Amino acid sequence: MSHRAKYTPGPAAGARIQKEAEKWTLVLVRDLPHPPAKVWKALTEPEHLREWAPFDADRSLGAVGTAKLSTVGTPTPLVSETQVKRADAQKALEYRWGGNDMRWELEPLGGSGTRLTLWHNIARGYIAMGAAGWHICFDVLDQLLAGQPIGRIVGPEAMKFDGWQRLNAEYAQQFGVETHGLTSGPRT
């Protein structure tokens, strides 16, 4: 059985929401047993993003300036131009994706680990789905950094993946929001 076939996401954890007026922000925190330099490469370099992220980049995101991000797993290619607004190597990265602001922060942990925090503005109706999707992306990222890549699991493929429906429901319950019409079976 392949490493990917054995993968099952853990329980919904490490996420919260912030609301300012009508703006909703998903905040995800994950402690990774990998040094900031290695995590930074995975967040910024196209060949690493291709292994775990829900989009491809046409250049390194490790420098301020224009880049094109192509959403993966959509029926038709969805390419958006973005501005990398902040790129402080191994510390912080900010850009927009799909019209939403994203901010990544890397904080060294004791030993050689990194606390990775993502702030992602997202519509309220999709916030549990976003948390479930990023949860799986972070798991895939952790496996990649550990030298045991299982391949990107994003978009419609992620929604069919064992554990996604459960994560979506768990995050919706944690956040006090409805799941967005993609659950299996009737809602009770």
Score class of each variant (00 low, 15 high):
63 A>C: 05
162 D>I: 12
149 P>W: 09
139 D>V: 02
150 I>F: 02
45 E>A: 13
85 K>A: 09
126 Y>D: 07
165 Q>R: 12
174 Q>F: 00
29 V>D: 12
75 P>C: 06
62 G>R: 01
110 G>E: 13
101 D>H: 14
46 P>V: 02
133 G>Q: 07
75 P>E: 13
166 R>G: 01
140 V>M: 02
179 T>F: 03
10 G>Q: 09
161 F>T: 13
72 V>E: 02
178 E>K: 15
35 P>T: 04
53 A>N: 02
55 F>D: 01
100 N>P: 00
67 A>R: 03
169 A>E: 15
128 A>F: 00
142 D>H: 14
103 R>P: 05
81 E>I: 07
63 A>M: 11
153 I>Q: 04
44 T>R: 01
84 V>K: 06
163 G>R: 00
176 G>S: 11
164 W>Y: 15
50 R>D: 14
156 P>E: 10
126 Y>V: 01
150 I>K: 07
172 A>N: 01
113 G>P: 11
43 L>D: 09
106 L>I: 06
40 W>M: 13
185 G>P: 12
139 D>W: 00
122 I>A: 01
86 R>H: 08
4 R>K: 15
130 G>F: 08
92 A>Y: 03
73 G>D: 12
185 G>T: 05
52 W>L: 06
51 E>F: 03
133 G>E: 07
1 M>W: 06
46 P>W: 04
141 L>H: 05
131 A>D: 04
29 V>W: 00
110 G>A: 13
166 R>M: 09
97 W>D: 11
94 E>S: 15
26 L>S: 06
143 Q>L: 10
41 K>N: 13
69 L>Q: 01
115 R>V: 09
105 E>M: 11
183 T>A: 15
47 E>L: 06
88 D>C: 04
177 V>L: 07
43 L>Y: 08
45 E>C: 06
119 W>D: 09
122 I>D: 00
138 F>Q: 03
4 R>P: 09
75 P>Q: 11
109 L>Q: 13
169 A>Y: 03
182 L>E: 15
24 W>L: 02
165 Q>Y: 05
93 L>W: 09
158 A>R: 03
91 K>R: 15
124 R>S: 12
58 D>T: 08
31 D>I: 09
43 L>N: 10
98 G>R: 05
22 E>F: 10
90 Q>V: 07
131 A>L: 06
175 F>I: 03
139 D>L: 04
39 V>C: 08
15 A>D: 08
55 F>H: 09
80 S>P: 00
160 K>L: 15
12 A>W: 00
138 F>G: 01
79 V>P: 05
145 L>Y: 07
75 P>V: 04
117 T>Y: 10
82 T>P: 00
47 E>I: 02
134 W>G: 04
101 D>I: 01
73 G>R: 00
